[in-house]
Design a protein around this nucleic acid. Sequence first.
DNA 1: CTGTTAGCGCTTTCAC
DNA 2: GTGAAAGCGCTAACAG
Lengths: 337, 337
Amino acid sequence: MRKKVTLKQLAKELNLSISTVSKSLKNDSEISQKTINRVHELANFYNYKPNALAVSLKSNKTNTIGVLLPEILNHFYAKVLYGIEQEASKNGYKIVTCITNESYEKEVEYVEMLNYSSVDGFILALSKETQMLNKLDHFKDLKRDNVPLIMFDRVSGEIDCDKVIVDDKDASKTAIQHLIKTGCKKIAVISTIFDLSVGKLRLEGALEEVSLHDNVSLIQLPINNVETEENEIESFLKNNEIDAVLGLDETAAAIAINMANKLGYSIPKEISVIGFTDGLLSKHSYPKLTTVSQHAEDLGAKAAKMLLDRLSNTSDTNYQTNTEVVKTSLILRDSTN
Amino acid sequence: MRKKVTLKQLAKELNLSISTVSKSLKNDSEISQKTINRVHELANFYNYKPNALAVSLKSNKTNTIGVLLPEILNHFYAKVLYGIEQEASKNGYKIVTCITNESYEKEVEYVEMLNYSSVDGFILALSKETQMLNKLDHFKDLKRDNVPLIMFDRVSGEIDCDKVIVDDKDASKTAIQHLIKTGCKKIAVISTIFDLSVGKLRLEGALEEVSLHDNVSLIQLPINNVETEENEIESFLKNNEIDAVLGLDETAAAIAINMANKLGYSIPKEISVIGFTDGLLSKHSYPKLTTVSQHAEDLGAKAAKMLLDRLSNTSDTNYQTNTEVVKTSLILRDSTN
DNA sequence: CTGTTAGCGCTTTCAC
DNA sequence: GTGAAAGCGCTAACAG
């Protein structure tokens, strides 16, 4: 159904051998200028492009990066993807994106599928289920095959690979510090991701920081299902005389600011709100949300750079792995004093 | 650096020929059961998987779909991507995602790159720049090569290919109807995408609907840069005695509800708001936004289905193209009466 | 300067 | 039942 020009056809039409044509296209100094010109002319005429598959098969290199994301509707991951894509395409790499949808099984499937041999390396964040089951054999296989692998955000200590993480613990410390500094005494921490590595780290940071201060207390509110638990969240906020809320993820942050508005609390006068989010929320909430920015795009770009680095230093197979930490920053807006 | 088991190695180790091993793996009836068992055993032991590149080269089929998106930080496209991904992976296809970032040049680059021969077909929405320049040769090339191509959302009438579009015109008619029905008389239409095909259609619908009613007027407010024009938007809303706002895209919708809140208008009592958006905004705004839902995931799934259909009916090269229309729906929430 | 040859990993036809 | 050989499109070492 599909017909593309090949070297063979060019060669035939020009009465040359395939290899001469191939070399001409690369302007090989071995070939006479005249031949080179003839070849280029016909190649242009037919809009010849080398078959990427054949080149990859030959060179054992696909110039493609596999990216596995737990979710794409989450703005954080979308931004990371954007960062990766920018950096990759700048270097002539394309990316294959798979969305695991937080499923262990899909993650395994995708890793296997891409590993034969569609990609040169992987960038990924673990799915929720994988983190909970802690089954990591599919990544050990990759390591055994010497396939470069970068984990970001949701990483595992059990896999020895390059990592890019966010300083989640510090981030929530800073957030709590700010709240305390501006006079808050009773802080609610709400989260829909208490069971993820990052969720735990963020909570830890908050707890540690609070413990350093007298007269400041912290209450936790885990949320599993926003829709069904709306009432409980509401009464939680109403009954606890809270003067600040820290949302550990974008959804939680949204809920927080939304509820506060609904209950008629004045923000930030009566309640201060800080949220972990890089999304639209911060800009388009009212009042504008003070956020912990995770610099998702930078993170993506950094991960891509690390991978490209590994791919170009193909020599040393037994390298030392790195973990880079992306610093968050607290972006002050109108929802805090 | 990377070492994978090949048929050759299996053959050698089993003292069989490559072709026998290949057939055994496919449980070819020609081969004795005993041999088949031996082969499978060793293959499992080494976790053999056929090299996808070689298979593709041979079969001229990659089982990969190329997806070109103008943006990924836009929730609508993220959702479409999700829909495509779901449908594709259900059918054993993987997707290569490229983000054109609204640039014509990048779009051309990606189309060419993927067409040799990394993908079996394309699903895409035109970049803003491409629509404005109206340069479409790269798609004509695809057509000439008989590469299946599905356009969605931002499509071009000049390319004869399958399309999936949203009934944008009807959608804004319905939205305006609702506003009028609930008593609104002076409606502002704000948009950051007046210059895109979909933006134009949405505006048209609104204008047509308004023209059918006496005593109802419509004012347009184009927005180019949210950050810098905040003040103008504010004074526009203040000085025009508006009682309803229709935001033609997610950003515009966000701005609308945010501004109304800021100016102290009570929603929906004093001002009703409707926005085109599938995003978080609707759920996490205060009050919750009445939206025109574009059913982005369905759209993505539908596009993927159309493409897979074309790919399986590889026979007829001169087929008739279809345009499917995804119906929007007006989802009533708290920002309208 | 140009061409021959081998080979990347796989499938498939045709001999034996 | 099993294997040899050709070929997908390309590159590169080696001959001439």
